[in-house]
C-alpha cells in the first residue's frame, strides 16, 4: 500500500476522538464509585465515626490518602500524553510522604515512648493489608482501561502510578473504617498495602499499556 493511500484512508476516519483527559476523569469517577459501593456494602464506617470526626489523627489520614490519590491522578494525566512533562506533578508525589513524616515526628514528640510500639502495631494490620488492595481492584482496573486509550511512553511506570492512584482511593475509604489512627500505624501498614497494588499495576502496565 502506498503511503498516500493510507493517508486518504486515515482522513476518512475523522470522527472526533475521545480526549484522554476526559476518559481518565470518567475512569476515576467510576473507579471511586465501585470502591465506594464495595466499601458501604461490605465494610461500612467504623461505629464511632461521629466522635472520630472530631479528632485530628482520624482526619489527618484522609489528608495523606487524598493527597496521594490527587498527585497520582494528576501525574497520570500527563503520563498518558506523549511528549508532556510531569512538571509540578512530579513534586506533588512528595506531599503524602512529607506530610506523613511530619505527623510521625509530631506523634513521637507528643506520645510517651512506652506507647509507640502498640500504636505502630495497631489492631487491624491484617485488614489493612487485605482491604486496601481489595478496594483498589475496581479503581485500578478502570484507570488501566482508560490508559489503554492513552499513549504512555513508559507503560510499566504508568501502570505503577495507576496503582498508586487506586491505592489512594482505596485507602481513603478504608481509613473511614479503620480505628487505628496513629501516624505510626499509617506509616507502617498503608505503604505495604500500597506497594502490593503498585506492583500489580506495574506488571499490568508492562503487559497491557504498550501501544
Amino acid at each position: 500500500m502506498k503511503t498516500d493511500d493510507l493517508i486518504d484512508l486515515l482522513a476518512q476516519d475523522s470522527a472526533v476522538p475521545w480526549k484522554i483527559g476526559r476518559i481518565l476523569g470518567y475512569a476515576t469517577v467510576v473507579g471511586t464509585v465501585i470502591a465506594g459501593t464495595v466499601f458501604f456494602i461490605g465494610i461500612g464506617f467504623r461505629p464511632d465515626i461521629a466522635s472520630a470526626m472530631e479528632t485530628v489523627r482520624f482526619l489527618f489520614k484522609f489528608v495523606v490518602t487524598l493527597s496521594l490519590a490527587i498527585a497520582a491522578i494528576g501525574a497520570l494525566l500527563r503520563m498518558a500524553r506523549p511528549g508532556a512533562r510531569l512538571g509540578l506533578w512530579g513534586w506533588a508525589f512528595a506531599a503524602a510522604p512529607v506530610l506523613l513524616g511530619g505527623a510521625v515526628i509530631a506523634e513521637l514528640i507528643v506520645m510517651p515512648e512506652s506507647t509507640w510500639v502498640a500504636r505502630l502495631v495497631g489492631h487491624n494490620a491484617r485488614f489493612c493489608l487485605t482491604l486496601i488492595p481489595l478496594l483498589a481492584i475496581g479503581p485500578l482496573a478502570c484507570l488501566l482501561l482508560a490508559l489503554r486509550q492513552g499513549a504512555p511512553s513508559r507503560p510499566g511506570l504508568a501502570g505503577a502510578v495507576a496503582g498508586l492512584a487506586a491505592s489512594g482511593i482505596a485507602a481513603t475509604f478504608y481509613a473511614a473504617n479503620c480505628n487505628d489512627d496513629s501516624p505510626l500505624y499509617v506509616m507502617t501498614w498503608y505503604p505495604i498495602a500500597t506497594a502490593m497494588v503498585v506492583f500489580v499495576g506495574y506488571l499490568a502496565g508492562t503487559k497491557f499499556l504498550k501501544w
Binding site: 476522538p17 483527559g21 498518558a80 511528549g83 501501544w211
Partner: peptide, 23 residues
C-alpha cells in the same frame, strides 16, 4: 501515521504539536 491516528485523542490542542509527534 497509524499511531498518530489512533492516539490523536492524547494531543492537547493547547500545547504545541511538535513534542507530541516526535515522542
Amino acid at each position: 501515521l497509524l499511531a498518530i491516528h489512533t492516539k490523536r485523542g492524547t494531543w492537547d490542542p493547547n500545547r504545541p504539536i511538535g513534542p507530541w509527534i516526535s515522542t
